[in-house]
Simulated scan of single mutants.
Amino acid sequence: MNYGNCTPSQARKLIREGKINVPTSGICNGYAQANMAILPKDLAFDFLLFCQRNKKPCPVLDVTEVGSPIPRLTAPNADLRYDIPRYRIYRHGEMTEEVTDLAKYWTDDLVAFLLGCSFSFESPMLEDGLEVRHITDNHNVPMYRTNIECVPAGVFHGPMVVSMRPMKPADAIRAIQITTRMPFVHGAPIHLGDPAAIGIKNIDTPDFGERSEIHEGEIPVFWACGVTPQSIAMTVKPDLMITHAPGYMFITDIPNSKLAIM
């Protein structure tokens, strides 16, 4: 079924009912999607500072009150315990569980962060006639850990994660123009071309997501990615961090147009 024309509230209802359990790229076209990271309150300030210092991979859209699962700025009728198709539980840096709701994991000391997602700039790219390969081929976007170190803050440090979309060079230039106007959802690419230059040893084996075919005459184009907190969890090994599963985002009530600089 095509969920592109769903409203955000309709999509979240279907997710809560277990009827949408697929990567959310292409769902609710025109509305911003968000990455999520949840931490105990004693780590929340350090993580907020980390996001402030690393706005390309971690552009903050919303932060919940301590103990509240309600994202009041981005979707005040939503509940972050149930409205994402898949969640990952990290304990001491290891992903221990992937679940479809957080009912038994949520506690009154948790703080949730919603971070801008590159799926939000795919709609204007498609509207401009650009191909987005993982949408064409109906698979999750490929994501890679890089050798680009984030700016440390408190206990948080580690490498940036990037998402990749293959493009012809002329299309890549247009994609840069489109995404530069959207800094709240990662903005312009951070790298074009040679994957080894940013520490990616094999473009055919992403660390998260699924492989995209790169056709003759195309180059890989890399954007900073909101899966970076999952890489940070593997590096820092906090007692607990809860995230979305890569590619399975939170759908907000915010139109993408509100996040663009015109």
Rank of each mutant, 00 (worst) to 15 (best):
F184Y: 15
I261L: 15
P69K: 09
L49F: 07
N140H: 01
P255N: 05
P169W: 11
G67S: 09
I219L: 11
H186T: 01
D137F: 09
C6D: 14
H139G: 06
G226Q: 09
S9H: 10
I176T: 13
S25A: 15
P159D: 07
Y144W: 08
I190T: 08
C51K: 00
M164D: 04
R72W: 09
P246A: 12
L114W: 07
M160V: 10
N54I: 03
P8E: 03
A175I: 06
G226F: 05
G129W: 09
V227T: 10
R145C: 12
T24Q: 05
M95H: 08
N54Y: 04
S123C: 15
T228N: 03
I190D: 02
Y3I: 11
D204V: 07
A233N: 11
I20A: 02
P159I: 02
D109Y: 09
L110Q: 01
V236H: 00
V60G: 06
R53W: 04
E127V: 10
L259K: 06
E218W: 08
D204N: 14
A44Q: 02
I84P: 01
A32G: 09
L14P: 02
I251S: 07
I15E: 05
W106R: 01
L14V: 08
D137I: 05
I261H: 14
I242A: 01
K41Y: 13
Y3F: 14
P57W: 03
D204P: 01
F121Q: 04
P23V: 04
R86I: 09
K13C: 10
T74E: 10
S231V: 00
Y105E: 13
Y144A: 06
T100Q: 13
L48Y: 12
G93K: 09
I15Q: 02
A44D: 06
Y31K: 09
M262Y: 13
I173H: 14
K237H: 01
V236D: 00
G129P: 08
D194E: 11
V141Q: 05
M182L: 10
M182T: 02
